[in-house]
């Protein structure tokens, strides 16, 4: 069943702050095998002009995707999450995420489309720091495959 178009433009309440820990950044950098010193060494990060260690560009997805759960699990929207695959992902940064950030995410449904029985949902996650300054926006396209379709 196609998703209700009237949900386009709907925003969900900002999430509780997520505090970015330097050891979490280190764990993530190690998990992607990236030895760049800016992720683990505050001196190296400062030499590049950052006030503290920064996170790899895709680190913030863990935070924005959790926030997108408000949309995905909205019973009124009725998305069948068991059929959902990640279609596209994009980030637009004002600055890199860094250790000590307390980040909130506001999720908005940007678009709902139906193509060949698939439901396509575009979610925008605006990430702000404790001062209310914009840090990054995550654009996530989810595709709920038509029932009975494999792969």
């Amino acid at each position: 069943m196609a998703l209700d178009q009237s949900f386009v433009g709907r925003s969900y309440p900002a999430t509780a702050p997520y505090e970015v820990g330097r050891e979490k950044i280190r764990e993530f950098a190690e998990a992607i095998g990236d030895p760049a010193p800016a992720y683990t060494d505050a001196e190296a990060a400062r030499a590049l002009g950052h006030p503290d260690v920064i996170a790899p560009p895709t680190f913030v997805f863990s935070i924005t995707f959790r926030a997108a759960g408000q949309v995905v699990e909205d019973p009124q929207l009725g998305l069948d999450y068991s059929r959902v695959v990640h279609g596209d992902q994009k980030f637009v940064y004002t600055r890199p995420v860094r250790a000590g950030d307390r980040l909130t995410v506001t999720s908005t449904i940007e678009a709902i489309k139906s193509m060949a029985g698939n439901d396509i949902l575009d979610i925008r996650g605006e990430v702000h720091d404790e001062a209310g300054e914009h840090v990054v926006t995550a654009f996530t396209k989810l595709v709920a495959r038509a029932a009975g379709q494999e792969g």
Partner: peptide, 30 residues
Amino acid sequence: HGMFTMAEAVRVVTDWTGDPGAVVEYGVRF
């Protein structure tokens, strides 16, 4: 994980610039 592949791919860019903070926009289709 698609996000793992996305994380690896951009290392070609961040290693090249030397500053991961130089990335102002990054998008992919899986």
